[in-house]
Each structure stands twice: as C-alpha cells, then as structure tokens.
Nucleic acid binder design. Structure first.
Lengths: 237, 237
DNA sequence: CATTATAAACTACCTAAGTAGCACAACAGA
DNA sequence: TCTGTTGTGCTACTTAGGTAGTTTATAATG
C-alpha cells in the first residue's frame, strides 16, 4: 500500500489526465493502483505480436511508443498510433480479449504502469460506474480511426502531411511536438507514404518558409503559411 | 407487454444473432424490448447528420442502410459500413453521446427496432453484466476500422475489389450477397475509388471468367479464379 | 411502342505518388 | 581521426489511378 501511495504521488498528475479513468479521486486511484507496478523499457525495445499485451494493460507515464503494423508482402510499415504520456495500450485486447496483430516499438526510454488484464476487468466489474468512461474512450478511438480512413480516401499526401504537422503544434509555444525529432521515414509511416515522397513535400514547405528541416528534426517557422497552404489544398479540387 | 412479446416472436431469430446483446434469453429480451418500437423507412430515405441518431438507437431487422460520409470539397462519397439485418447503429453515439458526422441512406425498404438512447443506457446501468458485450463489440468495430486503414495503405484498388467480392460470398451457395445488386458507383464508394476505375477492374475479372456483370448486378462465376487472382496480387510486389 | 433516364463500357489523357539510385552531411563508436 | 552508419536531398523514371467524354445497353415510363 505504501508502494501504491507512492505511485499516485509520483504520477497522479499524469493519471488524472488519463481519459480512460475520468472522474476518479485519490482514494479510488489508490484502490486501483494496488494492482499496478512500474516498468521501464529501454529505447528501441520492440515487441512483435507479444503475448505480453494480452495479459497486461499499460499506462504510459513517460516516453513514446509507436503501435504499427507491417504488410506481409511489401514489408512496408504503417504507424497506427504514436502513443505518449497518458495514453494506454492495448485497448483492443482489453475490450475483447483477443490478441492484437500489431507491433510495438519504443521511440524513447519508456516508463509505464502495468496491470494484469484480469485484475483490471475484475475492478471494472466491481466498479461498474467506470464502464461509461471505457465506452466513451472506445467511441473516441473509433472516431479517430474513422477520421483516419476518411483522410486516406479523400486527401493526398501533401494534405495529410500538413494536417499531421498542424495537429502536433503546441499552440502555447508554436513549436512542433511529439513528431519534431523523427526521421522522414517515420513521418512517412505515420501518413502512409514513403520517405522519398515525404521528403519531396517537406522540401516544398521548406522553400516556402513554413518549416525548417535538419537531421532528425522538423521545426515550425511560420504556422500561418502552413494554414494557408492547407486551405489551398482544399480549394484545388 | 403484448406488443413486446410480439416483437420477440417476430424478430427473435434476428435478435439472437445480434452480437451486441450476446447471451440474453427470452425473458431478458422481453424486458429490454419493452423500450423498443418498430419503424419502417422507405427505400432511398436519406438522413444527413440527423439528430435522430443521437436520441435513438436502432437494430436492423430487414433491409440495408449505408453509413457514408462525404468530402466537403470534392463531394466524393465513401461508404463506411453497409449495415444489414442484425447490425445496429449508431454505435458511435451510443458509446460517447456525441453527434456522429455521417450520412445514412436506405438501400432497401428498411425495418428497424428503435429504442431511446437513454432507455438503453439506463437498462445497461441496471444490467451491468451486459457491458462486456458492448465492450467486445466496440473492440470488434475498432479492429474492422483498423483493418480498413491497413488495406487502404497497403493494397491497391484491384486487391481491395477482390477482397470486397470474396468477403461477400455466401459459401453455401457460392453466390455473391449483400453487394450483388449494387451499381459500379456504389462498389467504388465501398473501396474508396471511382466508378470508372472499378469498372476497369471488373472488366478484367469478367474477361478472365471469374465474374459476370450486368446492369446493377455482379455475379460470381468461378471463385477459384478470384482466389488465384488475389494470390497473384500479393506476389506481384 | 417511343421516349427518357440510368448504368455500363471504352478511349485517351494527365498527374501524384511510388521507385531506384547516388552524392553528400551528420553523427556515433572504435 | 578514421570508419561505418544513418538520414537527407536530389534526379530520372514508371505506373496506377483519377478524369473527361462518348457510345452503347438496359430498364422504366407514359
């Protein structure tokens, strides 16, 4: 229990931002955290269809993981979600208890809180009031996936790239976050394209003065140009 | 109550195949069906971002509806789901209570059982044992959306068309079902392409003897050729 | 039966995106 | 400092898929 209190003290601010567990107070958190333990995974750890995720559920407290899948034939990668502090995984397994055919790789050294799936499910059964938070979160996830599908069908690569950039701007500092230190290849994986094509579009944005590019680094120079560019994309059709 | 019993008698076999409400017996169904009423919508009825779906939840007992969305700029359509007997909507709204920006159109004359969203949510709160079915179903839906994303990124139109056809074959009769009477345009909307391109690929399949095409009709001639074709697609890369 | 509407079939063309290959820069480790 | 590795920037080329427009077939309607 001392351990539990410690976890809440250490990570309370992160946990309270966690959408999946909305509206829980410290007492309730401590009750739940009883079943958790802390884990650290080094950078570049990679989990390929690992059983791990069928039996434990994780909350990220620091670092990034990409959840991606790989096409059997072309061996191309596609990053489904770039998970970060406050995100959880694997929700797919939690919901239906079926193994999720998907890969994980740590972009940074990762710290997670881990709980056995069954403990979490039991806790839910005993506290059915929290089912609603899980349902809402599932709904939100479905909307994100649906939005993803729409973008893939309706928009071209340069639009998808612009949207990716704009959706990762921290508007308090006007800085790019989460994806600012990724190589072109990883950016390509996020929008379903290839390094060469993404680079082609980044060059265009560099030339019009909206971004700055260097090795493993993309920085925002002028958001207004990006927004104008996105507007033009739409009008084009 | 007489009315309720009637609903179960009429549609029990459909309801029992409904994944969302797994493991319910007649008594429980009748308890739930108390809140339902029957509705009929004519063919080609169209609902555009209608509040209707925020306040009522529907189970289809006969006919097909497409859930689709439209790109604001290109005005292209994409059919997200072709819902049929035993399917429900709108799960997005049920889960998180937020309006779902999506269109509906009846392909056939439609019969649905309707229940006020809040009644269904109340029923769930009183019968928390059934939450698990809803979570599982949400998980399944997420997997479908994820699979959709993967297909869009990894595979070309001809592969997507082949998969669409093969996933709609009724293997007891070797006949195409659900999509067999759609015009090329609607098939295109299902895989995120255009009428002309879909037609191009259908012609190829017609020429190799795997399908038969006529006005508003696609029929399977030889599944083995389709399967072989799908195999070749994969090897191609 | 004639008229109209809708869908299918086909042709020609255009373009975005994928592909391959190479030179160069940045960085890490020995 | 040397060396191997990884990422960027660029050129040249190929191609699937989107686009536009026309003709032909099929069904529905009066």
């Amino acid at each position: 229990m001392a351990n539990t209190n410690e976890l809440y003290k250490k990570y309370g601010s992160t946990l309270n931002r966690c959408e999946l567990f909305q509206g829980m107070d410290e007492k309730q958190w401590n009750d739940l955290l009883n079943h958790f333990h802390e884990e650290e995974w080094p950078r570049e750890s990679c989990f390929i269809n690992h059983q791990k995720f069928l039996f434990h559920f994780f909350i990220i407290v620091s670092g990034r993981v990409k959840m991606y899948n790989v096409d059997d034939f072309s061996e191309k990668e596609h990053t489904l979600f770039l998970l970060k502090k406050g995100d959880v995984f694997d929700l797919f397994c939690l919901l239906d208890g079926v193994q999720h055919q998907v890969y994980y790789e740590c972009i940074d050294p990762l710290k997670v809180l881990a709980v056995p799936m069954d403990d979490l499910r039991d806790w839910l059964k005993k506290n059915p009031a929290y089912y609603q938070g899980f349902l809402s979160y599932a709904g939100k996830m479905m909307r994100m996936l649906e939005e993803n599908v729409s973008q893939l069908i309706f928009t071209d690569i340069s639009t998808r790239l612009l949207k990716l950039l704009l959706s990762n701007v921290d508007y308090s500092s006007n800085r790019l976050q989460h994806i600012n230190d990724l190589p072109n290849k990883e950016i390509a994986n996020l929008i379903g394209s290839t390094r060469a094509v993404v680079n082609r579009h980044l060059q265009k944005l560099k030339r019009n003065g909206s971004i700055k590019v260097s090795r493993n680094k993309v920085q925002i120079r002028d958001i207004s140009i990006l927004l104008k560019e996105l507007n033009n994309q739409n009008k084009k059709l």
